[in-house]
Design a protein around this nucleic acid. Structure first.
Length: 571
RNA sequence: GGACCUAUAGCCUAGCCUGGAUAGGGCGACGGCCUUCUAAGCCGUAGACCGAGGGUUCGAAUCCCUCUAGGUCCGCCA
């Protein structure tokens, strides 16, 4: 039974029910509080007077150590050593699984991201997508679900033809190797070049459309050019994914394989009378009632549109994975599209329709305005990673003059990438963000490196305790020795982790983990500065603190792992 | 024209779902702390009529309505 439940039981004995306990703003006031405003109304008495009487009436028992009246509240103090014991034992027992749950056992979830276009390299927008997608997948997984990470390459269409045409016209048969450029950047260069020329001469647009027609007719020359350039783009993406620390995808879909499909689904809907054939032979659906207007599903000429292939892809995924949920990690601009897609799936009465969810996230702006790949103003993913790693490397070398080159490299990679990921994950995904290089590239304050540093500090104490005093942390300690304000606050924060991961999962809110870790790191650093461990002379206290440090280390590690950030042991 | 999202100190942001006791952080500014476990840290000071107006409530940053500003979408493009 939790402390809260224990207090509810206690209150029941005094005929108080249906009032939510609150947590006072300051732990000095108490651990839990009963507001007496609604009681005041019932009993026609001032809330302060009621609270005063109740506080006298209710006798402490069990884990409740003290009952005290503060204004209109009855505040409860619980025996902190019990919380310490409960929490520390749990963490020692569960280690890497602390914060995990088995709620989703036996259920399957598909998470799709980042679904790039193969005409240009990945930029900061994709990084936000990847960070969120990977983190969301981890959070779902930690709740016991079997997660499948899937990707979709948008590898055909007019925009792809634009970079192809530019290469054909101005590429001189150069290759990424000959130009010594990363292969996806090589492709992107031609996309930017095309955009420039297209502005001056609309004739190029016409040529690109002609190329798309040839591609659709499976013209062999165009197809081989397409295959060559796509393989450049895709191999470039793969190295970016790897650098960013993404796990390999469980399945990769290609739009070029599926773009014609889905027509049978529409015909099925037509048979059932869900869709209509218009006078011009186009098949449409009337979503006026849903407030979504009329949508074309198959063109008059019998060809399919974007939404048709998405109907097909949803089915493909279900047939392959038999998922309970399917999450699409896609920017907020496509909200309407997914609204229509899911409405159609429901209309068609697919069993999986209810399980589909669009996880949308806000756009990434630059101080100058919107990022435009076409104009080459996007913040490139590879460049940003390198930049951050170099900055981290400088800082590390300054701190450790004798560290080996390899060690500097691996640490700066973890710190640099961690900084980017945390920056992208710490705030509400729903909100747009402006990438301001000056503050975004910082390693101080509310950042990933701050969390990694806190973790490294905890590791360092554990190492030294072993070396200098042969102390190892254990769950068999004198819990009542942990009585300092900062110790109690730290224990309190540690205890919250499982409910935070659960909340983060339930609401699709990755940022709750990041916010929690900041709170935890602050609590630990406060403790670190006021409670020595190795230098502590009271042996029992030193041991208790060491265990508390180990629990913090473990919890930060578990949290960072959910964010896709490596918890490094030294910085 | 319609739909959705956003608005919290000079700047970035948490809290809003589930209303409560002095609205948390961070950057920047100012002042302290490295003969004690990593100063990428810690402590302190200054800085917020929570976009505006109404409503509900004993109580509103939080719920409801209106308005304003910014953004996004509403294609037989993907």
């Amino acid at each position: 039974m939790s402390f809260k439940e224990e207090i509810y039981e206690l209150l029941k004995k005094h005929n108080i029910q249906n009032i939510e306990l609150e947590v006072p703003p300051d732990s000095k006031l108490g651990d839990f509080a009963l507001p007496c405003f609604t009681l005041a109304e019932e009993k026609k008495k001032a809330p302060n007077a009621i609270a005063e009487d109740l506080a006298k009436e209710i006798q402490p028992e069990g884990s409740v150590k003290e009952v005290k009246n503060v204004g209109p509240y009855v505040n409860f103090f619980i025996d902190k050593s019990k919380l310490a014991e409960q929490t520390i034992k749990k963490i020692f027992q569960e280690t890497d699984l602390y914060g995990h749950s088995k709620d989703g056992e036996g259920k399957k979830v598909v998470v799709e991201f980042p679904a790039p276009n193969t005409n240009k390299p990945l930029h900061l927008g994709h990084m936000r997508n990847m960070a969120l997608g990977a983190c969301l997948a981890n959070i779902i997984e930690c709740q016991g679900y079997k997660v499948f990470r899937v990707n979709l390459n948008n590898d055909r269409g007019i925009h792809i033809c634009k970079s192809m045409l530019a290469y054909k016209l101005w590429g001189n048969n150069n290759t990424p190797e000959s130009d010594k450029i990363k292969s996806d950047h090589f492709v992107g260069k031609y996309y930017v070049e095309f955009a420039k020329k297209e502005k001056e001469d609309p004739n190029y647009t016409e040529q690109a459309q002609e190329m798309l027609r040839k591609w659709e007719a499976e013209d062999s020359e165009i197809r081989s050019l397409w295959e060559k350039m796509n393989s450049w783009a895709l191999s470039g993406f793969d190295s970016t994914y790897k650098h960013f620390g993404l796990r390999p995808f469980d399945k990769v879909y290609y739009e070029s394989n599926t773009y014609k499909d889905g027509k049978n689904i529409v015909l099925e809907g037509l048979d059932k009378g869900l869709f209509q054939k218009r006078d011009d032979d186009a098949i449409v659906v009337d979503l006026e009632k849903e407030g979504l207007g009329e949508k074309v599903l198959v063109r008059a000429d019998g060809t399919t549109v974007y939404i048709t292939q998405d109907l097909h892809l949803a089915n493909l995924k279900y047939n392959e994975f038999k998922f309970d949920r399917s999450v699409y990690v896609v920017a907020t601009e496509q909200k309407y599209h997914f609204n229509v897609l899911f409405t159609l799936l429901k209309k068609l009465q697919y069993p999986f329709a209810e399980g589909c969810y669009h996880f949308s996230y806000g756009m990434v702006h630059l101080p100058e305005g919107r990022m435009k790949s076409r104009e080459g103003t996007a913040v490139d993913a590879d460049d940003l990673m390198t930049k951050m790693e170099n900055m981290a490397g400088e800082a590390i070398k300054e701190r450790h003059k004798t560290l080996s080159k390899d060690e500097v490299k691996s640490r700066s990679q973890e710190v640099g990438i961690g900084a980017i990921k945390f920056y992208l994950l710490k705030n509400d995904a729903n909100k747009d963000m402006t990438f301001n290089p000056k503050e975004s590239l910082s390693f101080e304050g509310d950042t990933g490196p701050y969390l990694q540093y806190t973790h490294a500090r905890a590791c360092s104490i554990l190492r030294k305790a072993k070396e200098e005093k042969d102390l190892t942390p254990s769950a068999d300690i004198a819990f009542n020795k942990l009585a300092d304000k900062s110790e109690l606050a730290l224990i309190d924060t540690l205890a919250q982790f499982p409910s935070k991961t659960e909340e983060s999962f339930a609401g699709y809110k990755p940022h709750l983990i990041g916010q929690y870790l900041l709170t935890l790191a602050r609590a630990f650093n406060e403790f670190y500065h006021s409670c020595p461990c190795i230098k502590e002379e009271n042996e029992e206290l030193a041991k208790a603190r060491l265990s508390l440090i180990d629990c913090t280390r473990q919890t930060i590690k578990n949290g960072l792992t959910l964010l896709g950030i490596t918890a490094i042991e030294a910085m």
